[in-house]
Write a protein that binds this DNA or RNA. Structure first.
Lengths: 257, 257
DNA sequence: TGCGCCAACTGGCTTGAGCCACTTACTGGC
DNA sequence: GCCAGTAAGTGGCTCAAGCCAGTTGGCGCA
């Protein structure tokens, strides 16, 4: 793809970045290793400190290194992925009495914690309104926001939207929703989850998301817009999952139809 | 989430970036609009050009703007997502005679083009070897690399791995694999696709991927590690899809088991 | 009219200097 | 033996200046 001879001479900052990248990928520098300081790098390459700094910025953007203020720049540890599977909706998980998140946390020997910062009646975002088939210009939904932590590290932000007319006055408006969680209550309302639709995309986080998830520069987020359909094909719940991509993966296992 | 009063005074570069971000999100600056030049921004905020430049870098990293050398900095257009569905493996799509990619391209009125840069016997990467259940230290697989384009814009890179002992001497070693593609040939070898496992993650692209996909800074990639299982639960094909996340989404629709 | 050149403007990248905030390790006093 | 204070080293961020390279549009020549 690139030309036979590297005809275009790379600018110094990129050359330094590529040197370091090669060293990291070849294992010459291992995860956790400290890189030379910006000042040392600059001197070694006969460049200005800003140029060395720019090289490190490039690597950080690629997710290869992390700078720790006052301490140094370190090769990033490969993260064990927390997997969220298509079976998170599975009925058989009900039997464990654990929510899918707690189950996955337990599998990895971590302590799960879930915060519910807000539950409120709201106007839905347009993409949610479309999928839940409610008007976008009225306060037609209940919005439940949840933050999930594993060993006190934030892992995902989940916004769940339910029809206001159904949720009104029920446990769905409370932080504790009772046995089997919201899906238990929704079943009592006549909605048995039969099919799900997950729309997946990836993007860079907003500043708010970066703060909430304590994301380092160069870490994207995975966004899943989830729709639950009941036995009649009626959408009764829409959720937006925002996962940190450095610690999270998704797993879908499905039959070919 | 943030403190009541913004006690920590943001550095100038961030302040400029946040100003611009707010203007973009409020619609004050629309997609396609040109931002003030670095020099103009610097003067307007009483800062050095480098500082204005840093602000723009921050926005670019968030995927909000794109710089065009010699021309200006522009608010990025929201991209229509090219959706790859779980039905890409579906048998019913066979009837159209089109591959899933060509089908999706046609839906969006774009011209699909597929390149096959290489087909070679290789040692598999460890993650592929694990899933295909072949040794990682031998040349046990055939690696087919494909590049997909829509209207000549690169959209995804796909690496397909097949067992060498099965593919050897068949059409699977050729660029043109005949009717119904590789899955047609694999069926003749006794593998009917019955279940699929897709492992999804997101990350920043490597420099090579950024070059091949013509990615702008601040655009992550979606990686799908796909495994096909046959009627006996035997994995017979593993593919790694690398999608550009600014134009691509994934759609999984599945029954709850 | 049409085309080619060129000036002005844009971002890309570097330099070298300086100040600040945070971390770490050592050192001296209690 | 402990602990507080400090000095040295680190990244975070800015400044002011300069050169380069790509783009654009207008001006003037043929």
């Amino acid at each position: 793809m690139t030309s036979a001879r590297p005809s275009t001479p790379q600018p110094p900052s990129r050359r330094i970045a590529e040197d370091l990248r090669r060293q990291i990928e070849s294992g010459e520098r291992s995860p956790g290793d400290k890189l030379p300081s910006e000042r040392a790098l600059a001197e070694a390459y006969g460049a200005a400190r800003n140029t060395a700094r720019e090289a490190i910025r490039i690597l950080a953007e690629q997710g290869l290194v992390t700078a720790k203020h006052g301490s140094g720049v370190f090769v990033r540890e490969p993260q064990r992925l927390f997997r969220f599977g298509s079976d998170r909706y599975s009925l058989k998980n009900r039997e464990t009495g654990l929510t899918p998140f707690r189950l996955e946390a337990k599998k990895q020997g971590k302590v799960a914690r879930i915060e519910v910062p807000s539950i409120a009646r709201e106007k839905p975002p347009v993409d949610v309104a479309e999928r839940l088939k409610v008007p976008a210009d009225e306060e037609s939904v209940v919005h439940r926001e949840n933050h999930y932590f594993a060993d006190d590290e934030p892992v995902q932000i989940v916004s769940t939207y339910l029809r206001w007319d159904e949720a009104q006055g029920t446990l769905l408006m409370q932080p504790k929703t009772g046995k089997d969680g919201i899906y238990g209550r929704l079943e009592e309302l006549g909605h048995v989850m039969t099919r799900v639709r997950d729309e997946i995309s990836a993007r860079m986080p907003t500043p708010e998301e970066a703060a909430t998830l304590e994301l380092l520069p160069g870490v994207p987020v995975l966004e899943v817009l989830h729709t639950s359909l009941d036995q009649d094909g009626i959408p009764f719940e829409v959720s937006r999952y925002v996962h940190r991509a450095d610690q999270t993966g998704l797993l879908y296992e499905l039959p070919v139809e």
